[in-house]
Design a protein around this nucleic acid. Sequence first.
RNA 1: CGGGGUGUAGCUCAGCCCGGUUAGAGCGCUACGUUCGGGACGUAGAGGCCGGUGGUUCGAAUCCACUCACCCCGACCA
Length: 489
Amino acid sequence: MSDILTKRADDYAQWYNDLVLKADLAEHSEVRGCMVIKPHGYAIWEKMRDALDGMFKATGHVNAYFPLFIPRSYFAREASHVEGFAKECAVVTHYRLKSDPEKGIVVDPEAKLEEELVVRPTSETIIWNTYKGWIKSYRDLPLLVNQWANVVRWEMRTRLFLRTAEFLWQEGHTAHATKQDAEEETMRMLDVYARFAEEWLAMPVIKGVKTESERFAGAEDTYCIEALMQDGKALQAGTSHFLGQNFAKAFDVVFTNRENRQEHVWATSWGVSTRLMGALIMTHSDDHGLVLPPKLAPVQVVVVPISKTPEQLAAITERVQPILRSLSERGITVKYDDDDTRKPGWKFAEYEFKGFPVRIAIGPRDLENGTVEVARRDTLEKETLQVTDLAEKIEHLLQAIQSNLYEKALQSREEHTRAVDTYPEFKEAIEQGGLIYAHWDGTEATEARIKEETKATIRCIPLKGDTSPGKCMVTGAPSAQRVIFARAY
RNA sequence: CGGGGUGUAGCUCAGCCCGGUUAGAGCGCUACGUUCGGGACGUAGAGGCCGGUGGUUCGAAUCCACUCACCCCGACCA
């Protein structure tokens, strides 16, 4: 069984690839850099999407949809934004094909677009161009819009979920009357992301602000949630940007304030992507396969009958019905797998590999004893339980799994977090992986040097924790507070 | 975009150096039987333009040229 999956200790990257493919989450498509998200993977993404969407709505946001194609000239409006994305844009240059005797079908050279269309790598430009028409008065603000969409970034190297040329995400784009409102929105959504990561993904995250070199192209400040994966590498799981008035100025979005004066609006944008799937996988899964937190598992409980004869299966099915009903009544999603073309052992392995949080097995012995065997995926423990009050016990078990996963991930992060004060110490520590808190003089030069010499980047300047000043571990210059270094995905 | 590698059955690969009937293995798939509480076993079967094009040759999976695709490692990035 376990021989179909590379061990994490042997080759973590290979383990990840094997897992994604063999747990049926996604596969490489024939199209370079693009993946096919398979039903099991997509079902998890849908759970994430629904949970996040609910949190966005609860904070006053509404959904809308903007075009996939952005006129090339829009990108020229905001200087740093163009610079950030120019190198990875797919561009539509023609709008028609024609048949060709030799090649079958070719681009019709006659059908060249007057102005090329950029396939959105992100939507700030088209959205701000649109907002110009929506915002006239302070009474139109705040404007709190989100969109669920696909975006394209022409990446050199891709990895399933972590970096693909096309990916799914949500991007919130908000407009505000004051700087303070926009800043509050930025932080509000950062908190939403952090809460989602911890309560749903069961993944502890650190909230922080990015250094200038890691900042989103066009932002004044980029805030992020950073998580630590099992191999000691950090993963940026979500970002929330305070855009200042940059896009409002670039697209001339002004409103009339209460004093009848014209002002540029203040903006934010924030997003999380299918990369969260990678974060989820790498946070909890083990050498036996995928491990899913119950709140994101497409199916929380699978029931496997064990029978030798059709009569036995019928008897088991009858016994199982009230169990299924009582679980459903508690809002627990459950699947009864009475497929007789697979054997129980095969099913056990399969559901374990795919990360189903709880498995209930019921066989002839259980029929006699009024029991079932309950196995939990996170610890692989099994116990035999009386059927009485089973649903209630399962409900508690699911909660226990959810919190156990979070606790384990938190403990793992703490074990792989340390503070260092000297550069030699840092170099040694970074080889061990994990998050390293160290003092930095705040200059881009020092940051670049550290990256060059150690491949570690500043993941963020944490918002909470030790904020006492010190001296830069590299230059000895004054440092306002410790920042977090790590090698990152 | 640089460096490396791989294309042969649904999957993983052998065969290629040293050209020679009908191209192999394991897994998976199909049928039947025995099985069924942790990925069972036996028997029988199906499945291939050997990535593509062009060359060399009596003869090419095998040699040569070109080409396409994908993977891995770097630089860039959510």
